[in-house]
Design a protein around this nucleic acid. Structure first.
Lengths: 226, 226
DNA sequence: ATTGCCGGATTGTCCGACAATCCGACAGCG
DNA sequence: CGCTGTCGGATTGTCGGACAATCCGGCAAT
């Protein structure tokens, strides 16, 4: 056993629990806009609609609630969370803390983590250039921002950031009609990374802070329109 | 309806769902050391021991797992999480990010939040002076540290910090025999706040960083002994 | 030493049931 | 008209039982 490299290291298999698959499907439905925010998720209806028992559906709902995608009111069931301005502000404030902390760690971070961020950037910019779908644009954009948090090299902080992004996705799913100026964002993002490569961490931090504040403002505006 | 202050604003009632009570009881048992880390939490046994159905117990276990207090292995059940050095390091790194971000915001934070931090400090120091129980010392100490995160004025970041502290409590529950130099810590903490009052944010940040690094080292050492 | 098989224990999932609670409607009553 | 009490339907919270799938340890067979 000792000293020998595992010959099957590349093998793995993900067995998807039924609960997980149900949660995945619900997430997808929410982020794809099939379920408007505020829609009540009735247990019996959803259960037989998905072909699962009420017990397992309840468990899946618990997952969604824990992720902040849905809210549960005692004795009144769970419904798709409706992002109010207050929570949007909070999510943006929280993500700013995490991402800025990541930026400030650029120099000390592991090279592979920096590379991941660079890769995420090119994935995003190419998606922008090729005029990808709004959905993939959002995903690439969030993946890029997650790259900053990954610089902190802390699985828990990354997981926290992902739950924050889940709430952002929920909010964005409501305003997907508004195609924002993605090209401009791509430009500002490459500029940001270039500042980092040059060693200007403070400049990048203030730049990112401004970008995040702008994103928060955009979301709030778009959300207040209807 | 408009302009009138709610005459019943002070009223509220917390109806404790059975699941919540079960989760609370399990948390208490874990943090009080009644359940050693690694102990498997058998569903049928625990369910009838607590006088609840297996369904509700399962749901409560899901809560514990989501909080990181327990871990679930597919088809093998959930057991009390055993804090390995890697996760300890991660938790400490994550809390450092959050607490340091809070310290850096001392000047801009709301006065009431600063006051809460001051109150938490005196609560802790008096507990130290009066030789309170190890358990309450831990609680006051963590409450003080949480005060830094509260300076960020973000409910989500506070909630994240609390789950991090839950994992810390779990680790501390394993080494409660070792009574650490709480008096010294109280001194360093008051010194830290005094630096903040004086406006020396950078000094307080480096001080807190060192303190957190020391705490991480202490926990890792104490955990490696047995 | 490895493999194959078996039996008990435990989880994952399903089903049906029931009380508690909530909601809307509707009647009663000042 | 506004407020209060009541009723029925719908939904959740919790329960108990059931069963296949999976895991684990031991033991036999190769």
């Amino acid at each position: 056993m000792r000293g020998m490299t595992d010959p099957f290291g590349s093998l793995s298999l993900e067995l998807a629990s039924t609960v997980d698959r149900v949660a995945d499907e619900l997430r997808r439905a929410v982020f794809d806009g099939e379920l408007e925010s505020g829609t009540p998720l009735r247990e019996v209806a959803l259960a037989e609609s998905l072909g699962v028992s009420r017990s397992t559906l309840r468990e899946a709902l618990g997952v969604l609630v824990a992720e902040g995608i849905a809210v549960r009111e005692p004795n009144r069931g769970v419904s798709v969370a409706s992002p109010d301005p207050e929570s949007i502000r909070d999510v943006c404030r929280a993500r700013a803390v995490l991402e800025l902390a990541g930026v400030r760690r650029w120099a000390e971070a592991d090279e592979s983590l920096r590379d991941e961020l660079r890769d995420a950037l090119v994935a995003y910019t190419t998606a922008v250039r090729e005029g990808a779908s709004y959905h993939t644009l959002n995903e690439r954009h969030l993946a890029f921002h997650l790259g900053f948090v990954q610089l902190l090299d802390s699985p828990r902080l990354v997981a926290m950031a992902e739950t924050l992004y889940a709430e952002l996705r929920l909010a964005l799913a409501q305003i997907d009609r508004i195609r924002r100026n993605a090209h401009d964002q791509a430009g500002s993002h490459t500029r940001l990374v270039m500042m980092l490569e040059r060693g200007d961490v403070d400049g990048a931090a203030t730049d990112l802070g401004a970008h995040l504040a702008g994103a928060e403002r955009d979301i709030l505006e778009a959300l207040a329109l209807p």
